[in-house]
Amino acid sequence: MDETGKELVLALYDYQEKSPREVTMKKGDILTLLNSTNKDWWKVEVKITVNGKTYERQGFVPAAYVKKL
């Protein structure tokens, strides 16, 4: 869990989004888990830094590609 009590997951593999509802992740990324009720796709939040500014983006990743921490 992070400092706000949200559950975290670890990306076990790289994943490139294939639709606007998904998010890209790299092996080793730590993501915030938002919803894991679907056994195949989990909703996560990723933080992306571009030119020194951090953005948060929500989307789905394959559940088999992440592990709860």
Rank of each mutant, 00 (worst) to 15 (best):
G28S: 03
E7Q: 14
E3H: 08
N35H: 06
A64M: 11
Y13R: 14
L12V: 07
V44Q: 00
E22C: 06
L8N: 05
P20L: 08
L10Y: 09
K27E: 06
W42R: 01
E56S: 15
L12N: 02
N35P: 03
K27R: 10
I48A: 07
A11T: 04
R21V: 11
K27H: 05
I30E: 03
S36H: 10
W41V: 03
A11C: 10
T54E: 12
G28V: 02
K6F: 13
K67F: 08
E22K: 04
V44C: 04
E45N: 06
G52T: 07
N35D: 15
E3Y: 04
K6G: 09
D2E: 14
M25P: 00
F60L: 09
Y15W: 11
S19F: 05
S36D: 15
Q16G: 05
L10G: 02
G5K: 13
D40K: 13
Q58M: 08
L33I: 03
N38P: 04
L69Y: 08
E22W: 03
T4R: 09
T37H: 11
P62Q: 02
Q16V: 15
N38Y: 07
E17P: 14
V44D: 00
K67Y: 07
V50Q: 11
V44T: 01
V50E: 12
T32D: 06
L34V: 13
V66G: 01
T4N: 15
N35T: 07
A63R: 10
K53I: 15
M1Y: 09
K6M: 11
K39E: 09
K67S: 09
S36V: 07
K39V: 10
F60T: 03
I48D: 07
T32A: 12
T37K: 12
P62I: 02
V9W: 04
V50F: 10
K47Y: 10
N35A: 09
S36K: 07
V9S: 02
L34A: 03
K27W: 03
D29Y: 04
V23M: 06
Y65M: 14
I48P: 03
T24Y: 03
G59P: 00
K26P: 00
T37L: 09
K47M: 12
K67E: 14
T32H: 09
I48K: 08
T54F: 11
Y55W: 12
L10C: 08
R21G: 15
L8Y: 15
K27P: 02
V50T: 10
Q58H: 09
K47Q: 12
P62E: 02
K6C: 11
V23W: 03
G59H: 01
K26H: 09
G5P: 15
P62M: 02
G28L: 02
D40G: 07
D14W: 03
G59D: 00
V66D: 00
K47R: 14
K39L: 09
A63L: 01
L8G: 03
G52S: 07
Q58S: 11
L8K: 13
V9A: 08
T4V: 12
N38G: 09
M1D: 15
K6D: 09
G59C: 02
L69H: 05
N51H: 11
T49K: 11
D14M: 02
P20N: 10
G59S: 01
V61C: 04
R21D: 13
E22S: 05
D2P: 12
K43I: 14
E45L: 12
K18V: 08
K27M: 07
T24D: 03
V9G: 10
L31T: 01
V50K: 10
T54W: 11
V44S: 00
K67W: 07
P20M: 10
T32L: 15
D2I: 09
G52H: 08
L8S: 06
R21P: 04
N35L: 08
L31D: 00
E45D: 04
L69W: 07
I48S: 07
W42M: 03
K47S: 13
L10D: 01
W42P: 01
V46E: 03
P20S: 12
T4G: 14
I48H: 08
Y13Q: 14
M25N: 00
N38R: 08
G59A: 03
W41Q: 03
A63Q: 06
V44G: 00
K47H: 12
L33N: 01
R57A: 05
Y15M: 01
I48F: 10
K6N: 12
T32Q: 12
A64I: 11
V46C: 09
Y55Q: 13
A11N: 00
K43F: 15
Y13V: 12
W41P: 00
A11H: 01
K18Q: 15
D40P: 02
K6T: 13
E3F: 05
L12Y: 03
M1R: 06
V66A: 02
G52W: 05
T49C: 11
R21L: 14
T54I: 12
G52E: 07
A11W: 02
E56Q: 14
E17R: 13
N38I: 05
D40Y: 15
Y13W: 11
T49L: 12
Y15V: 01
L12I: 09
Q16I: 14
M25V: 11
Y55M: 13
K6Q: 12
W42F: 07
G59V: 03
L34G: 01
Y55S: 10
V9T: 02
Q16Y: 15
T24E: 04
V23Q: 02
E7D: 10
T37F: 09
K26F: 12
T54P: 11
E22A: 04
L69V: 12
K6P: 13
Q58Y: 07
K67I: 14
Y13G: 05
S19K: 07
T4Y: 15
L34Y: 03
L69S: 03
W41K: 02
W41C: 06
N35R: 06
D2F: 04
V9K: 01
D29C: 05
V9Q: 00
P20I: 10
V50M: 12
S36R: 07
G5F: 12
V50C: 10
N38A: 07
L10T: 06
R57W: 03
V9Y: 05
Q16C: 10
W41E: 03
N35W: 06
L31V: 06
V44N: 00
T54D: 12
V9R: 01
L33T: 01
K43R: 10
K39H: 12
P20A: 12
Y13D: 08
A64H: 13
R21W: 15
T37I: 08
G5N: 12
E56T: 15
V66W: 01
D29I: 02
M25T: 03
E3I: 08
K18A: 10
V66R: 00
V61Y: 00
Q58A: 12
M25S: 01
Q16N: 14
I30N: 02
R57G: 04
K39C: 09
M1P: 14
T4F: 15
L12M: 08
D14A: 06
W42Y: 07
K26R: 12
N38L: 09
I48T: 09
G5V: 14
G5Q: 14
E3C: 12
K53E: 14
A11I: 02
K27S: 06
D14Q: 03
P62A: 02
V66C: 11
L33G: 01
P62C: 03
T24K: 04
V9I: 07
Q58P: 05
G52Y: 06
D40S: 10
K68M: 09
K53G: 08
F60P: 00
L8D: 04
F60V: 07
V44W: 00
T24A: 05
E45A: 14
N35M: 06
T4K: 13
K18P: 04
G59M: 04
